[in-house]
Design a protein around this nucleic acid. Structure first.
Lengths: 257, 257
DNA sequence: GGGTATTATTAGACTAATCTAAAAATAAAG
DNA sequence: CTTTATTTTTAGATTAGTCTAATAATACCC
């Protein structure tokens, strides 16, 4: 059949932000309820109700009153496109302009709506088609494919050896702190103990001056990969990364034929 | 006296565009009338009337009904800041991302409103503090100083030898044409004759395959510097540029004390 | 200097995105 | 299964930026 390259209707940057948030919530396996979306965007609930109705009419998401929203293929496609832009921009700011990983998010947040596709493809090439951003987040490819991320939340991990896969928190203060104690993507660490009753985690980062006591809440934004348990000093650095996720479409059936 | 570093109140990108246009018109020694501003921005005259009143109230320009607008120091400061951003961005797109000089304008037009001051200072350093953009336009420095441009419009020039200083037209088609016939900033050329009755100019660019016949209207956007008349083949390339403009404040009395 | 042409302004309206406060639906708890 | 608490939606308003059509001011020309 004819492959209609459906031109991507242009949407406002506000709409892009809504789609991005719904995608983020869906990725966390949560229901994209009015209030949850509102919290992420820091707007009033009523505003979200209106917008969701509008986005439904535009065919970008399903919306059931009093229930919530779910992206359509078209909406997801757009959301993933923004996600790709955001992460590529972060990588560019970090690698080319020397931004710290705690600085990249805010700038990318504005640029993702302003740069052209040409800009994106140029920085993609300049960076040699990076697979991850400075926080360890996977960068969707140009067609919208996203590698499945097979990582584990530190908050759920058992004591043992791990390497940091990604940090899903963009608060500059928090990231600066992690940096200070030596917790960055690719850092190896040993989780030594988890205190009971929502207590902190005792960690030993490889860059390892001393043990770090990290609050449980903070540990929820750190994702790790288990390391084959070998003597940490002689363990070979897993070049690509020991176990990779399989490659799959972004979302059920999204993307073009 | 105490140096109040007056924090630059933030304005919308729309306002930035208005200020930029008024600056551009003033730079052309014209009156910033409602209709002229409207034409530059491609909006209705009525829209401009409203906006000028608003900008006057914000202290960014003077506005006399039925006459026009003139930037205040504060307004000019903001406008020059955007101009600097625009031109630095163009240079960056050209030098780092490999954009053609006919492609840079459109992208910079969006980015100038979106990038942070950090971004600007980083690309400024990366480019080694360039003095001009890809069209030969002077880039104001970080304090808002602008070199006086002592160039001559080709439309007003007498036959003789010149080098191209700048091209003040951002139409991609037009720039692509100039490029094709070998007319770019720094290109040396000889203006051979000017046909009477608004006729075309006969030019011989140094990169010089053959003579170029350029319409008078087109010649208005090309600015040149006269060359000391020596045999063109042996003339030494003026390194910095033979005669430089003096350095002065951007606009009468603008800038901080 | 009065009539015509041009240029500006006013008036009224629209859209996108937002808000607050009130009303309605759903969920939770006895 | 009724009452209460929570969540969501509706209603009504606001702001920024824009438009068109009508009116008013200025400029130009014999």
């Amino acid at each position: 059949m004819a492959v209609e390259s459906q031109k991507q209707s242009t949407v406002s940057s506000t709409v892009e932000d809504y789609l991005k948030v719904v995608l983020k919530i869906e990725d966390m396996k949560q229901r994209a309820s009015t209030s949850r979306v509102a919290r992420h965007l820091d707007v009033a609930d009523a505003t979200v109700t209106d917008m969701l109705r509008k986005l439904k009419k535009a065919g970008l998401l399903e919306y059931k009153p009093y229930y919530g929203a779910a992206l359509t293929r078209k909406g997801r496609q757009m959301a993933v496109r923004i996600l790709r832009r955001h992460r590529l921009l972060e990588m560019f700011l970090h690698q080319v302009l020397g931004y710290g990983w705690e600085q990249v998010h805010q700038e990318a947040e504005r640029l993702e709506h302003a740069v052209s596709d040409l800009f994106i493809s140029r920085i993609d090439a300049l960076l040699d088609f990076p697979a991850q951003d400075p926080h360890g987040e996977i960068i969707p490819d140009a067609r919208g494919f996203r590698q499945v991320e097979d990582d584990l939340c530190l908050a759920e991990a058992e004591p043992g050896s791990y390497s940091v896969r990604k940090v899903t928190n963009s608060d500059p203060e928090f990231l600066a702190y992690l940096d200070k104690v030596g917790l960055r993507p690719a850092t190896r660490l040993s989780l030594q103990e988890k205190s009971p009753f929502q207590g902190p985690l005792k960690l030993l980062p490889e860059s390892g001056r001393e043990a770090v006591y990290l609050g449980l809440e903070a540990s929820r934004s750190i994702f790790v990969l288990p390391l084959k348990d070998r003597p940490p000093a002689s363990a070979p650095l897993p070049k690509g990364r020991a176990s990779r996720g399989t490659v799959g479409r972004s979302g059920r059936g999204a993307g073009e034929e």
